[in-house]
């Protein structure tokens, strides 16, 4: 599954708590990204493991990794090892569900997160594709292909003419370069999801402006979780000890 070409610091990294880049670090990153997509403190979570993860999650600490990510803890943070204790302190209720039979088309290392916070709900499916790298393949029924290497705006909008142009021109005015843009529709319905991946971190304050555009229903910013120099500054913790 050749993805977007990797950089040096994708292969030499991440700095992480062992023992598995795919079953520990990758899972933590998927959960961390899911927390950004939910855009709220997670209150309830069902964590389903598929494929290799369903069989080996215990020994890899994949449960601790997923919980850590949901709490906003990155793979290199030593608090990952005792995330279940932190979860009970922070009022996160979770269940772990290993599913031995994968639906067709699922990557051999897949995690599905069903999250709730107040009225907000999120269904997110991610694959841990090796070396800590991830691919978010489904968000609330929209097929996606987010790898977390760049900041991304998820723009939920009415499926009508011109929304993409409005978003693109707003970003252009602020001189933000769009690295990748993809539009996704559910099977039926009138809503569409626009995924806008942008270079650098200059666009981080722009979610509100995008939300104000005609036809836009909701916007969240999913900050890059890439390693090292590729990503912008906060909120990542990587490289802090340099």
């Amino acid at each position: 599954m050749p993805d977007r070409s990797l950089g040096l610091l994708d292969v030499f990294g991440p700095v992480m708590i062992g023992p598995s880049s795919s079953h520990t670090a990758g899972v933590a990153r998927i959960a961390f990204a899911a927390r950004s997509v939910l855009a709220a403190r997670v209150e309830r979570a069902r964590i389903s493991f598929y494929g290799s993860l369903a069989r080996t999650w215990r020994g890899h600490g994949s449960d601790k990794a997923a919980i850590a990510g949901l709490l906003g803890i990155l793979p290199e943070d030593e608090r990952l090892s005792f995330s279940p204790e932190l979860a009970s302190r922070e009022g996160l209720v979770y269940e772990i569900l290993p599913v031995l039979e994968s639906p067709p088309g699922y990557h051999p290392n897949t995690v599905v997160l069903e999250l709730a916070a107040g009225e907000r709900r999120l269904y997110l499916r991610g694959a841990s594709v090796g070396g800590g790298k991830i691919l978010i393949q489904s968000i609330d029924g929209f097929q996606t292909a987010l790898d977390g290497s760049l900041d991304a705006f998820l723009v939920l909008h009415r499926d009508e003419v011109g929304v993409i142009a409005l978003v693109a021109s707003l970003l252009a005015r602020e001189r933000v370069n769009i690295a990748q843009l993809s539009s996704h529709r559910r099977d039926k319905g009138e809503e569409a999801l626009l995924v806008v991946e942008v270079d650098g971190s200059a666009a981080r304050g722009m979610a509100e402006a995008i939300r104000g555009l005609k036809g836009v229903l909701d916007v969240v910013l999913v900050p890059s979780i890439a390693s090292g120099a590729r990503a912008g500054p906060a909120p990542r913790g990587e490289g802090a000890g340099r």
Binding site: V11, F12, G13, P14, V15, P19, S20, S21, T24, G131
Partner: peptide, 15 residues
């Protein structure tokens, strides 16, 4: 150190 849950750099993976 990795097997014992210590801090390492995956290169290319933790294992």
């Amino acid at each position: 150190v990795n097997a014992c849950g210590g801090k390492i750099v995956a290169f290319p993976t933790a294992g």
